Amino acid sequence: MFGLVFGLANGFVFWLPRTAWPRFVVAVAYLSMRRKVPQDLMAFLKDAHEHRGVLRQVGPVYQFRHIDLQRHLAQQQP
């Protein structure tokens, strides 16, 4: 039992801060509470990729297929 607890604690202390996953979870939770992104962001991105053809997937990253759409969405709103 001690080995399991020690292993999990070691993983949280040394491995978790080095990944992007915790920051991603916090950012999605914060943005969904403020209604800036859909609550199920990954399902939204998957739908935009597979069914609507707006995004392409390059490895673990989604990219816009059309540069004009990317520029339009990147503009600052007043």
Rank of each mutant, 00 (worst) to 15 (best):
M1E: 04
M1S: 12
M1A: 13
M1N: 09
M1Y: 06
F2R: 14
G3Y: 13
G3R: 14
G3S: 12
G3N: 11
L4H: 13
V5Q: 12
F6N: 05
G7Y: 04
L8H: 07
A9W: 09
A9M: 13
A9H: 07
A9T: 15
N10A: 15
N10R: 10
G11Y: 14
G11V: 06
G11A: 14
G11C: 10
G11M: 09
F12C: 10
F14R: 11
W15N: 13
W15K: 11
W15D: 13
P17H: 06
P17M: 05
R18I: 03
R18Q: 10
T19W: 00
T19M: 03
T19K: 01
P22T: 08
P22G: 06
R23W: 09
R23Q: 08
R23M: 05
F24A: 11
F24G: 03
V26K: 12
V26S: 02
A27P: 00
A27F: 10
V28M: 06
Y30H: 04
Y30C: 06
Y30W: 10
Y30R: 11
L31T: 01
L31C: 08
S32N: 04
S32D: 05
S32G: 04
M33V: 03
M33L: 11
R35W: 01
R35T: 07
K36R: 14
K36D: 07
V37W: 02
Q39K: 11
D40R: 13
M42K: 08
A43L: 07
F44G: 02
F44N: 10
F44W: 10
F44L: 02
L45A: 03
K46I: 05
A48S: 05
A48V: 00
H49E: 09
E50Q: 08
E50H: 04
H51F: 06
H51M: 03
R52K: 15
R52V: 02
G53Q: 07
G53K: 01
V54H: 01
V54M: 04
V54F: 04
L55H: 00
L55G: 01
L55R: 00
R56G: 08
R56A: 13
Q57E: 14
Q57W: 06
Q57P: 01
Q57R: 15
G59F: 03
P60I: 08
V61S: 11
V61Q: 11
Y62E: 05
Y62F: 14
Q63K: 08
Q63E: 15
F64S: 01
F64N: 00
F64M: 09
H66L: 06
H66K: 05
I67E: 10
D68K: 08
D68C: 05
L69E: 09
L69T: 07
L69N: 02
Q70I: 00
Q70S: 09
Q70L: 13
R71H: 09
R71V: 12
H72N: 06
H72L: 15
H72F: 15
L73E: 04
L73I: 14
L73K: 03
L73F: 15
L73G: 06
A74W: 01
Q76E: 12
Q76V: 12
Q76R: 15
Q77P: 00
